[in-house]
């Protein structure tokens, strides 16, 4: 009885809301995760060749970095609206906008990672007969991981926050729930969706940090040895 009342009295925290709308919350969270994952992965797919291009041909550095920074300046509401005539009301629109935003951070992250590879390591690998493809894949990429992962974490966290604006076209994950709740001042729904959004960002950040540790065991071994000595 008391539980049902919190929906009537429009409390900020409402157990009945969480119980009765758990399916809605799960669906919105899944859409949120899906849009974020697609955006960051596609962002990486675009950022990688761009970063390699900048590294191989430094004269492209100015245009590529300048353009990605310029894109970041465009407000999200404007970005999604400008894509509307081309992509319509679709998830593709939101993902495209988020990919364009992620490029600013990801291109810089890949470049910072590659720049962190010691020149002598590269020379040694070349001396051992590594071709450029194998050098990139087996030597440079693993050594670039710490800086690269820092970029991916930053891009993921801001993508999760920005996804909410996708509710403009009805594809904003948890942002949709916030928008639906606004006309009726439904406090429990706004608060629950907002908190879930922040929790999602924190969880993604920790997950990626864990992944980074798994992928780069040598950094911990070195730190452990230094700490033990």
């Amino acid at each position: 009885m008391a539980a049902a009342n919190c929906l009537v009295t429009n409390d900020w925290i409402c157990g009945a809301y969480l119980r009765t709308r758990s399916q809605e919350l799960t669906d919105a969270t899944l859409q949120h995760v899906g849009i974020t994952v697609a955006s960051v992965l596609l962002g990486l797919l675009v950022a990688f060749p761009l970063a390699l291009l900048v590294r191989a041909r430094p004269r492209f550095a100015g245009p590529v970095l300048g353009l990605t920074t310029l894109l970041y300046t465009i407000p999200s509401l404007a970005m999604f609206s400008l894509l509307l005539p081309f992509l319509g009301l679709s998830s593709a629109l939101v993902v495209t906008g988020l990919v364009l935003y992620s490029l600013t951070i990801l291109v810089r992250g890949v470049l910072a990672g590659l720049a962190a590879v010691p020149a002598e390591t590269r020379e040694a690998a070349r001396g051992m007969g590594y071709g450029s493809g194998r050098l990139l894949w087996e030597v440079e990429l693993p050594l670039a991981l710490p800086a690269l992962m820092a970029g991916i974490r930053m891009a993921t966290v801001s993508t999760i926050a920005l996804t909410t604006v996708g509710s403009l076209v009805g594809r904003g994950g948890l942002g949709n729930l916030i928008e639906e709740a606004l006309p009726t001042f439904f406090k429990a729904q706004v608060l629950a969706a907002s908190v879930l959004c922040v929790l999602l960002a924190v969880a993604a950040d920790l997950l990626l940090l864990g992944l980074q540790r798994l992928l780069t065991p040598w950094t911990r071994m070195r730190a452990g040895r230094a700490g033990g000595a």
Partner: peptide, 15 residues
């Protein structure tokens, strides 16, 4: 970076 602007604005608007 982790807190959505839209969520904060919405929280203010239902208060």
């Amino acid at each position: 970076r982790a807190v959505p602007v839209f969520a904060v604005l919405a929280l203010f608007m239902v208060s």
